[in-house]
């Protein structure tokens, strides 16, 4: 994966943590959380897992000297 795609994906996942798609108020909840709040929490968990994976798998791409030399 190129660096631009990697950082783009990082930004996209972060953008998706905002509960954009929830508009109407519903008094339902799961585990005590309203559904839009649960979405925000789980999408943040997915973002955190992705960052964990990026750090593990793509550390060397982010550390690469290539663009500096060019």
């Amino acid at each position: 994966m190129s660096r631009i795609k990697l950082y783009g994906l990082n930004s996209f996942l972060l953008l998706m943590t905002v509960p954009w798609f929830f508009i109407n108020t519903k008094m339902e909840s799961t585990g005590g959380f309203p559904h839009w709040a649960l979405y925000a929490l789980f999408s943040t968990l997915i973002y955190a897992i992705s960052i964990f994976y990026f750090l593990h798998r793509y550390w060397s791409i982010s550390a690469s000297e290539k663009t500096l030399k060019k």
Partner: peptide, 27 residues
């Protein structure tokens, strides 16, 4: 209320931003 969950996200995002510059800056 639950909008304070934004604090969880921004604390995670800080690490996401380290991923962009910390590997190269450390080297």
């Amino acid at each position: 209320g639950f909008t304070a969950l934004v604090t969880v996200t921004f604390m995670c995002a800080i690490i996401g931003l380290y991923f962009i510059y910390a590997p190269k800056l450390h080297d």
